[in-house]
Amino acid sequence: MIINLIKKKHVDRILKILGKEKELYFGQLGAELNIDPSSLNKILKEMYSLNLVNKREEKSDYKLAKVYYSLSPLGIELLKRYEYLEELDNLKESKDDNSNSKNIQTNNTGTIINNVGDINGDLTFHK
């Protein structure tokens, strides 16, 4: 299930790098992301089984063929939705920061005034 996959470590980073670079071979992905090869292989296999990535082998004179990965149309759609969710989180955090700074005021007696009520006393706040 895709929902279970996107909760896993490194999946978001793999989506982003493949979205940016279009196609990378296994060694490039591992080097770019600094992920253990066995972990990367396991994640890519799962992403491939869910049709999130395309896989292409390039035969060469070497013993092992280079295996290239790119995002499939479904993977591109997942990346768009993931980025959208990140934007929503950023907007929420920005809104929370702005509303907290607008709703809290202090006066010269040490009273904190907000939209919930007053807290009287000698309070000091540190950032």
Rank of each mutant, 00 (worst) to 15 (best):
M1L: 06
I3V: 15
I3C: 12
N4D: 15
I6Q: 03
K7M: 08
K7E: 09
K8N: 07
K9Q: 14
K9T: 13
V11Q: 04
V11D: 09
D12P: 03
R13I: 04
R13A: 13
I14T: 02
K16D: 14
I17P: 03
L18K: 10
L18V: 06
G19A: 11
G19L: 07
G19F: 11
G19H: 09
K20A: 10
E21D: 12
K22N: 13
K22C: 06
K22G: 08
K22Y: 12
E23Q: 12
E23R: 14
Y25W: 12
Y25D: 12
Y25G: 06
F26E: 07
L29P: 07
L29I: 05
G30F: 02
G30Q: 13
A31T: 15
A31H: 10
E32Y: 14
L33C: 10
N34C: 13
I35T: 03
D36G: 03
D36N: 10
D36H: 11
S38N: 14
L40I: 04
N41I: 04
I43W: 08
L44W: 01
K45T: 09
K45A: 07
M47S: 02
Y48G: 07
S49M: 09
L50K: 10
L52T: 05
V53R: 03
N54G: 06
N54E: 11
K55V: 09
R56T: 07
R56V: 08
E57M: 07
E58F: 06
E58Q: 09
K59E: 04
S60E: 01
K63I: 09
K63A: 06
K63Q: 08
L64A: 11
L64G: 08
A65F: 06
K66N: 08
V67A: 05
V67N: 03
V67M: 00
Y68S: 02
Y68D: 04
Y68V: 01
Y68L: 06
Y68A: 01
Y69I: 00
L71Q: 03
L71V: 02
S72E: 03
I76G: 02
E77A: 04
E77W: 06
K80T: 05
R81M: 08
R81N: 09
R81C: 05
Y82V: 12
Y82R: 15
E83C: 02
E83I: 07
Y84H: 15
E86P: 02
E86R: 14
E87F: 11
E87H: 13
L88G: 03
N90M: 08
K92P: 02
K92M: 07
E93S: 15
D96W: 00
D96E: 12
D96V: 01
D96P: 01
D97P: 00
N98C: 03
N100G: 08
S101T: 14
N103F: 05
I104F: 07
Q105W: 11
N107R: 04
T109R: 15
G110D: 04
G110R: 02
T111K: 06
T111N: 13
I112P: 01
I113G: 04
I113V: 14
N114I: 02
N114H: 01
N115W: 00
N115K: 05
N115A: 01
V116K: 11
V116L: 06
D118R: 13
I119L: 14
I119A: 05
N120P: 05
T124A: 09
F125A: 06
H126N: 12
K127Q: 04
